[in-house]
Amino acid sequence: MREGQFIKRNLDRWRSYQEPTDDPDEIARHFTYLVDDLSYAKTFYPKSNTIRYINSMAANIYLSIYKNKKEKSNRFVTFWTTELPLAVRRNHRILLYAFLFFLSFILIGVFSAYLDQTFVRAVLGDSYVDMTEQNIANGHPFNVYAGENEFVMFLYIAFNNIRVAFLTYFFGITAGLGTVYLLFKNGLMVGVFEYMFFHHNLGFRSVLVIFVHGTLELSSIVIAGAGGLMLGNAMLFPKTYTRMQSLKAAAKDSVKIMISLIPIFIVAAFFEGFVTRHTDMPVWLSLAILILSASFITWYYVIYPIKVSKRNAQTV
C-alpha cells in the first residue's frame, strides 16, 4: 500500500483518537491500534513523517494512562456500575435489532399456529403437546413445572439456559447467521407455546405463571442474541478498522455483556424451580415479580447505560 493511501485510509480514525474519552477500554483500544499502525509504518515507510505523527499520538495516550493510573480496590463495583453499562450503551442499536428479531419470530410462531393447528405439534413435538393437553384436561395445565425436585430442576434449568445463551452468542462468529437462527428457533417455540394456552382460554393465566421466570429468561436470550450480532456486525462492517481489530473490540464488549447474564439466568432458574411451580399463588404476587423483572431489565440495559454515558461525557 502506498503511503498516501495508508494515510488517507486511517487519518479520520487517528483524528478521532485525539478527542478526549474517559472510557479505559476505548483508550486501550486506541493505543493498541496505534501500535499496530506504527509497526506497519516503520516496516513500509521507515523514513516517513507518518511514523513521528503516529508515535506522538501513541506516546500521549501512553502517558495519559500511566499519569492518572490508580489501583482500584473496587474494580468489581466499577465493572457493574460503569464498564458494563458503557459497553451496553455502545451497542444499544444492536440490542434493539435483537429484540425486534425475537419479537418478530414470536409473532411468526403465533400466526403460524393460528393458521395451522398441526404446526404446534411440529414445533413442540407430539409427546409434549399430549402431556400438556392431558394436564389441561386434568385441571392442572402447568403441572410440568411441578414434576421434579426443586433443587434438581433449578440446577438443570440454570445450566440449560446458560448453555443456550452462550451458543446463541458464539454462533455470532458465523457473521451473525447462527445467532439469528437460534433467535428464530427460540422465538418460534415461545410463540407456539403461548398460542397453545391462549387457544385453550388460558392465555392470561399462562402469562402470570410462565413469565414469573420467563421475563428474565427471554430477556437474557435477547441480550445474548445482541452479543452474537455484535460479533457478526464487527465481521461484516469493520468500518476503518481491520476485521480482526473490529472483532477484538466487539468481543471485549460482548463478553462483558455475556458475563452480566449469568446471575440473571441463575435468578430465572430459581424462579422456575422454586416459584413457578406454585401456580395458585396470588395474582398480585405474580404480577409483582413479572413487573419487577421487566423493570430491572429495562432500567439496567436501557435507561441506566444512557445515564452513565451522559455522566461520563460530562466529566471528560
Rank of each mutant, 00 (worst) to 15 (best):
F265G: 01
A59P: 08
L155R: 11
L290C: 05
T43L: 14
S295C: 00
D25E: 15
F197N: 03
V316W: 01
N60R: 05
F237A: 13
E217C: 10
I94N: 09
R89E: 11
T43R: 15
Y128N: 13
Y128W: 12
E272Y: 05
L107W: 10
A158H: 02
N135M: 13
F171C: 11
V316E: 03
I27F: 09
N68I: 11
Y145A: 14
Y300S: 03
V110M: 08
V192K: 04
V152T: 14
A251C: 08
P141E: 09
F151Y: 13
P24F: 14
F111S: 03
E150Y: 12
I289G: 00
L218G: 09
E19W: 06
Q314C: 05
S246M: 03
G232P: 05
M153D: 10
Q245M: 00
Y181H: 13
L103K: 08
N10H: 04
F151Q: 09
G176H: 10
E26M: 08
V180H: 08
T174V: 07
V129S: 11
I51K: 11
R205V: 11
K8T: 08
D25Q: 15
E83P: 00
Y45A: 04
I266F: 03
H92Y: 12
W299G: 01
I157Y: 03
D280A: 02
F111Q: 04
M131I: 10
T242R: 01
L100F: 14
K307A: 15
V316I: 06
I259F: 10
T43G: 10
P305N: 04
A98F: 00
V283R: 09
L34Y: 07
S246L: 01
Y156K: 15
G232Y: 07
N74E: 13
G178Q: 02
R205S: 14
L107Y: 11
L63E: 15
F6W: 03
T50P: 02
Y304T: 06
M235T: 03
F296K: 00
G214M: 07
N161T: 07
F193I: 08
S73Y: 09
S260P: 02
T174C: 07
F31C: 09
L285T: 01
A28M: 10
R90V: 00
G139D: 13
G191I: 05
L124E: 07
A250P: 07
F159H: 14
P141S: 03
R52I: 11
T43W: 12
D130K: 11
K252P: 09
A137F: 08
K256C: 13
S220L: 04
K67V: 12
P238T: 00
K185C: 09
F265D: 02
K70F: 13
R75L: 14
I108C: 07
I257D: 03
G172Q: 06
V129Y: 05
N68H: 15
H278F: 12
H92S: 10
W80P: 05
R93K: 14
S293F: 03
I61S: 11
I303N: 06
I51W: 05
Y128P: 14
V308N: 05
W284A: 13
T81K: 10
L188H: 00
F197K: 04
W14S: 00
M196I: 04
L216Y: 11
Y195R: 00
R311E: 09
S219D: 04
T179Y: 10
Y97I: 06
L292T: 02
V88T: 04
G203R: 01
V88C: 02
Q5D: 12
